[in-house]
Design a protein around this nucleic acid. Structure first.
Length: 100
DNA sequence: GGGCTGACTGACG
DNA sequence: ACGTCAGCCAGCC
């Protein structure tokens, strides 16, 4: 396995319940800057202990073709969705392992 | 090696 | 705020 993927998983595991992070944000934490899509690719094969459902796109929405399960899981953790099915990143966005 | 696809993002109109 | 276009990266024909 590539260590890069392990880094992605380790980082996603650091996202607390009730909070969400974007692909681009995670990519930056890893220093990929433009590898947001690669993060999604990694999560695609993420192990069961990785809270992949806490990862959404930069607009606070779900990118999956059918994100029903992901949305239900987030709501179960207390994440609030608006009428457009998007999350207010200002309130639920995870700043990262280190808060600037 | 060449080309296509996808769990993305930023810029434009 | 929304729809569209182009750029990026890794994996799979």
């Amino acid at each position: 396995m590539n260590k890069h993927f392990e880094s992605v998983y380790a980082l996603v595991r650091q996202v607390p319940a009730g909070k969400v992070a974007s692909y681009g944000q995670i990519a930056r934490w890893l220093g990929w800057e433009r590898g947001a899509r690669t993060v999604g690719w990694a999560l695609r094969s993420a192990p069961a202990d990785v809270p992949w459902h806490r990862v959404v796109n930069g607009r606070g929405g779900i990118s999956l073709f059918d994100g029903t399960e992901q949305r239900l899981r987030l709501e179960a953790e207390g994440v609030d969705f608006d009428a457009l099915g998007r999350i207010n990143l200002e309130d639920y966005g995870f700043d990262g392992p280190v808060t600037l």
